[in-house]
Design a protein around this nucleic acid. Structure first.
Lengths: 141, 141
DNA sequence: ATTTCTGCAAATGCTTTGCATTGCA
DNA sequence: TGCAATGCAAAGCATTTGCAGAAAT
């Protein structure tokens, strides 16, 4: 795993403590946090950091391709440092977002689906998202 | 195709001109409009209708299962009277949302995918959404 | 030295809410 | 008649914006 500082530098964006911190949070977790969660996580160690900076930072990191945005339909966006396309499951009771790992290959890595959809729709495709909705094991009772 | 009035009545919700009008708009189009688009479409024939009523109406229609919500990641939600699960393509330039028809069967109607994901994640699944992102034929130049 | 980023506060804009009135059942 | 829905205006809230000061290259 590459050093965070180096990864930012390769993307030709200024390396600041705030950017390293936000990216570090996303790399350490599998929880797909939203902006508020990232902000709360960083508050203890970076008391001066503002929420606006977190918004701007995730936007930059997403634009340079270091992270991806998820939209499970809550309103706000979630962020994921795992940029390889993979499906997600959303628990409609507790709001948790989990990865679905097993099927990344079948659906996304075989590009026949992508190609077929391009042919059918005429779109020039660049990304795909697959979301499942339901109740997580803890919320099923 | 069933009469709109009857469909609302079957869902045990009050049948009002506004609800019939909103549902009619969604049944007539394949554009997956958002609240503002529905409102603009209805304004000429229903000058007194308020935006808040459109918000409340799509919420009710969605809850009783007459329409589905789409979240392509724009911020707001889109609505679709086609409730059978099917993938969508979003044009990142002009914002258009199209249906992907050919693959509804392969991916969604065969429930092996659903079952596999349930087994892997332990979630009790109730819905799925598949979104493709790219440029539509008109925006490719 | 220059350019870009940060942090604050204010502004924006979509969505929701409260409530009096209207209208469906 | 009684309960629910509408329409208006106000409130709410997440996100964005502007800008002066700070920091990175």
């Amino acid at each position: 795993m590459q050093a965070i500082e180096e990864m930012l530098r390769e993307k030709r964006i200024k390396v600041t403590p705030q950017r390293m911190a936000v990216y570090a949070v996303l790399r350490e977790t599998r929880r797909h946090p939203n902006v508020e969660m990232i902000y709360q996580k960083l508050k203890p160690s970076y008391p001066a950091m503002s929420l606006a900076t977190v918004y701007k930072t995730v936007d930059v990191l997403n634009k340079v391709g270091l992270i991806q945005e998820l939209n499970v339909g809550e309103g706000g966006l979630r962020y994921d440092a795992m940029i390889k396309p993979h499906p997600h499951v959303y628990c409609q009771k507790c709001g948790k977002v989990d990865d679905v790992e097993q099927f990344s290959m079948d659906i996304f890595h075989d590009d026949s689906l992508f190609k077929q959809v391009q042919n059918e729709t005429g779109y020039d495709l660049s990304a795909v998202q697959l979301y499942f909705y339901g109740r997580c094991p803890e919320c099923r009772e």
